[in-house]
Amino acid sequence: MKEEQGMSILVKRITRMTVSLILLYGFYIALHGHLSPGGGFAGGVIFALSMIHITLAFGAEGVKEIMSKAKASFLESAGALLFLLIGVSGILSGAFFLNFLPTGYEFRFFSGGTMIFSNMAIFIKVGAGLFAVFVVLAFLGPEGHTEDNDGGEK
């Protein structure tokens, strides 16, 4: 019989309700970074915190279906490379990190050129990377044995 993981049923129910809101707020902060306070860094850390929330409430098995350590590592590298790609693609129109897209309408969502994409790249990179660190730390047993939950290491 499988042992029940995570915290009590109360915590799990509340987590189901709140986690999507926290995730949505992280996306909002990252997407509107060029209009209001926030940006990719803050949004990414909020994303990592929502994933940590799931990990603490449901245990290792609950979060593994949503995001495993291998997936998080892949997303981290992909985010960093995406940011570099945005910088390199500026070379095609003149200079490194040139804002080559049109600046758009002032004070509207479609403004700022490449800034939306840069924010999203940093969002993916910071969120996935910090979550990967937490997963490695959390599933480490107190005596140095990694409980066999960290997917993708074998």
């Binding site: 060029h34 306070p37 940006g39 804002n99 002032e106 403004s111």
Partner: peptide, 12 residues
């Protein structure tokens, strides 16, 4: 074209 000056320094 960005309203947030901190972000425009950071990313542009």
């Amino acid at each position: 074209g960005a309203a947030n000056i901190v972000t425009s320094i950071l990313l542009d």
